[in-house]
Design a protein around this nucleic acid. Structure first.
Length: 592
RNA sequence: GCCCCCGUAGCUCAACGGACAGAGCGUCGGACUUCUAAUCCGAGGGUUGCAGGUUCGAAUCCUGUCGGGGGCGCCA
């Protein structure tokens, strides 16, 4: 808001400072006024005063804060009040500029009315980025730990789009590897011919995997059978390949259901199986180039990064790119995948990997290796790390151990609880609407708890907390949206035109408008830092302001002029709430 | 041994180096003949783990330290 005006005012301030032989800053920085119930922008003169002090320009005994207050006072008096502002005042070293309420509120309301479902968004940047996320393994469970990845990745994609990027959503599915071979071994020997029960695909696949691990743990001598099976896979034994294709499809169908329910889709789905052979070829090249060292048959193929870089201190260490028996590893496939991405999308400004923080070293190793191999885009790779989801008592969710909360169980429970609340709060809704509301509220609550938290903080999964619909949570924001919608519906106008207020604004109106105006900043920061947290915070602030406004300012039952203004304010709030929720991949219901 | 993350109210978490460190939950007390009370208002709650440093100014940056978690050659 008012970017150009603020820059012009900044220049005037620099002029005033120069006239008084006060060192002027390169650029005058503005922040929103921190006082609620009023609005405007502020800058301070502490750096200027400190600069004077360093230059020995301050009279002896004069302290920096006092001098800053003096300068602020001087500027406040000398500055001609620009168009669109109501007053300027100097307070303890700060210069506060208050927006003219009528002009400013009209400005915000017009922006919302014009931009609608793009309100809060930023102009196009003409840059393409890829975000790889989800990365589920077939033949394994899909649990709440994986949910954080999907939700975070999807939200980051939406935020980047809102910030003006062209986003390619990529998934990378682990459809081959030791875990798959173990599963197949268990299936062939103990479950041959069985099929997953309808609607239970993921659970059944996960159970069989946990069972396979248990069997092998109890009878380590059976590992030989698994290795033999891996060899048959490597030789592309048709029987094994056919079984792999069939069982893999069960998992993929299960994933599709999950993604549909989460509102997630992908533009490009990569499979580990499609980069396995290219990976093995690449390893041969790396050996030929001297990047990888072949210790076979007594050892694996390794990349000794610290050695290659001449680093004394342990930094990148070394990692294995191919097993001693020639079978592939995760790393065997990640290298060609990165290359393939840039072959398919040569114009990527960034290739982002949403991968949990425990793989930070591994990610650095992959990125560094690609740099050493001379790929010019290696510096565009970025690891977006997030912390894990644990169970109470610091228990890691593990498909191997079977210590997981399955996503389907969480979603079912969330919806059931939400459904019970709908029945209680709004029994007159029809069945279809109740169901839709339960879905939106239940899923929203789950997503919000995952997103309204620093990426670097561990989430401890707790049923009660994950499904708490009160306080700072998605339903609070959804409810504000519903209230806004309800007012517009009752008024019978869905696109009230923006108007300037003719009345003295109520403090809650002022606060709401201020919060609406902060949405673009939140989008900008969230995109720069890959942090949906900034959006969830702002969404909550807007909802809170709206609820305050709702409680204190009648809209329908008031004078015509006031009503016209408030209706357009309600519409702006509705757009802002819906847009913020959309960036979190949370549905904004029309009623609940 | 080397590296990364976390430490803020009883609990879960916010806070762009900037004005008085804020929310929710929980506790106690209030507000529905008025647009949906899944809401709102009030009270109470803090040596931002600790010690130094940088800065006009530090929860935020730096160093050290304590506590918790994680990673470090054939899992992904």
């Amino acid at each position: 808001m008012f970017e150009a005006e603020l820059q012009s005012i900044g220049n005037k301030i620099r002029g005033i400072l120069a006239e008084h032989n006060i060192p002027a800053p390169e650029k005058v920085e503005w922040v929103p006024l921190p006082f609620s119930g009023t609005w405007g922008v502020a800058t301070n003169f502490f750096p200027v005063a400190a600069q004077e002090a360093r230059g020995g320009l301050l009279p002896k005994g004069k302290r920096v804060p006092d001098r800053a207050a003096e300068i602020a006072q001087l500027v406040a008096e000398a500055l001609p009040l620009p168009e669109g502002f109501q007053k300027a005042e100097a307070v303890r070293g700060y210069l506060n500029l208050y927006f003219d309420p009528a002009a400013y509120s009209l400005h915000v309301l017009q922006a919302a009315a014009q931009q609608k479902d793009r309100f809060g968004h930023l102009p196009s940047r003409g840059e393409r980025v890829m975000v790889e996320y989800s990365q589920p393994n077939t033949h394994k469970a899909f649990h709440v730990g994986h949910l954080r990845n999907v939700i975070l990745g999807e939200s980051v994609c939406r935020i980047l789009e809102a910030a003006g990027y062209d986003v390619v959503r990529a998934n990378y599915i682990g459809d081959i590897g030791l875990h798959v071979i173990k599963w197949l071994w268990n299936y062939i020997n103990y479950h041959n011919g069985e099929e997953p029960p309808a609607g239970q695909k993921i659970r059944w696949m996960g159970d069989l995997y946990a069972e396979a691990v248990k069997r092998l743990d109890e009878n380590p001598e059976l590992e030989a059978e698994v290795r033999a099976l891996f060899a048959r896979w490597d030789a592309r034994d048709p029987e094994i390949v056919a079984l792999w294709e069939k069982t893999r499809r069960w998992s993929l169908e299960g994933f599709d259901e999950v993604y549909r329910r989460l509102g997630v889709h992908f533009d490009r789905v990569y499979f580990e199986s499609e980069v396995e052979e290219p990976g093995k070829k690449l390893v041969e090249e790396m050996i030929a180039k001297g990047i990888a060292v072949d210790e076979r048959p007594d050892g694996p193929v390794v990349v000794r990064l610290d050695e290659l870089l001449g680093l004394e201190k342990e930094t990148y260490r070394s990692y294995v790119v191919l097993r001693s028996d020639g079978t592939s590893l995760y790393s065997t496939k990640d290298l060609p995948l990165a290359i393939l991405k840039f072959q398919e999308y040569p114009d990527l400004a960034r290739s982002i990997y949403v991968v949990d923080v425990r793989q930070s070293l591994y990610m650095k190793q992959i990125f560094k290796t690609l740099e050493l191999m001379g790929y010019p885009w290696a510096d565009k790779l970025y690891h977006l790390a997030y912390e894990v989801v644990n169970l109470p008592g610091n228990v890691t969710m593990s498909s191997r151990e079977g210590t997981v909360v399955l996503l389907e169980d969480l979603m079912r429970e969330a919806k059931e609880r939400a459904r019970a609340v709908v029945e209680e709060k709004n029994p007159q809704l029809d069945e279809a609407t109740k169901d839709a509301v339960a879905e939106a509220v239940g899923m929203g609550a789950i997503k919000y708890t995952m997103l309204a938290r620093e990426n670097t903080k561990i989430v401890v999964f707790d049923w009660e907390r994950a499904l708490d619909f009160n306080g700072v949570a998605a339903p609070y924001i959804q409810y504000a949206h519903v209230r806004a919608n309800s007012i517009l519906r009752k008024a019978g106008v869905f696109n009230p035109p923006p108007v300037a207020p003719k009345h003295e604004l109520h403090p809650t109106e002022v606060e709401l408008i201020s919060q609406l105006a902060l949405l673009p900043d939140a989008v900008k920061r969230a995109a720069e830092e890959f942090k949906p947290l900034h959006i969830s915070n702002q969404a909550y602030q807007i909802a809170k302001s709206f609820n305050d406004f709702y409680n204190q300012c009648p809209v329908l039952n008031t004078e015509e002029d006031v009503k016209a203004f408030r209706l357009s304010l309600v519409l702006a709030a509705k757009h802002a709430l819906a847009n913020a929720l959309r960036l979190l991949a949370i549905t904004a219901p029309e009623r609940m």
